[in-house]
């Protein structure tokens, strides 16, 4: 464990806590894409298949349980909670996220470390996570006023993978070399997708105005 990876995990955890706070405190999920939340639940379920078989550390197991349970809880909340579900922008959240699932599956079947269920699922989860934010970014462009908690949620979600890239650089220089090109490329794409969001988030912070993504 190095400081970059720990910072990345804490930033990721914080983004989930901010989203849970927004839904719990405002009893509303307006501005949140259910499709992105479903994709994240799928990412965690396919990446943490080893949850019950390989014990790496208490930290690792606890964090996996937190990410799986929080993503499923958010999906349940947005689909079934009597109050929250009514605030879901169903007609705005129209990204065809099945194409992202299909594309990631094809990529995982073509490009993986080893052709085993575990490795193909892992590669699938890495590719899917890289594009899972797209429905949310599209929804942000459509919903004119982005509330603060939603903006902070997306910001921390984007920042966490940037910390992971620093972690991979650190590990490259300090540990034996592994073939890490799958997370490398996917991580750069994932962080790159946030580039324009980070820019407009910075402008809204600098000019102290509400965050607005151009359509």
């Amino acid at each position: 464990m190095n400081v970059f990876r720990f910072a990345g995990d804490m930033t990721h955890l914080f983004s989930v806590l901010v989203l849970l706070l927004k839904i719990y405190a405002t009893k509303s999920c307006s501005g949140i894409s259910l499709k992105t939340q479903e994709l994240y639940a799928l990412v965690f379920l396919t990446r943490y298949l080893d949850l019950l078989t390989d014990f790496i550390s208490l930290y690792n197991t606890v964090m996996k349980l937190v990410f799986i349970s929080s993503s499923l809880a958010i999906v349940w909340c947005m689909r079934a909670h009597p109050v929250v579900r009514r605030t879901y922008d169903k007609d705005q959240d129209t990204f065809r996220h099945y194409t992202l699932v299909a594309g990631s599956l094809v990529l995982a079947l073509l490009f993986h470390d080893r052709f085993t269920i575990r490795e193909v699922c892992w590669a699938f989860s890495i590719y899917l996570e890289a594009v899972a934010i797209l429905p949310q970014l599209v929804l942000l462009q459509r919903s004119r006023n982005v509330d603060n908690l939603t903006g902070q949620y997306v910001f921390f979600l984007g920042a966490y993978r940037a910390f992971y890239i620093l972690n991979w650089i650190y590990r490259y220089f300090t540990e034996q070399h592994f073939s890490r090109w799958i997370p490398w490329i996917a991580g750069l794409v994932q962080t790159g997708l946030y580039a324009d969001f980070f820019y407009y988030y910075y402008l809204s912070w600098k000019n102290n105005v509400k965050l607005q993504l151009p359509a």
Binding site: R5, D50, I56, N60, K64, F67, Q176, F178, R180, P183
Partner: peptide
Amino acid sequence: EVEATPHDEL
């Protein structure tokens, strides 16, 4: 055979 990516990260 290059080692596969370790899965010790989240």
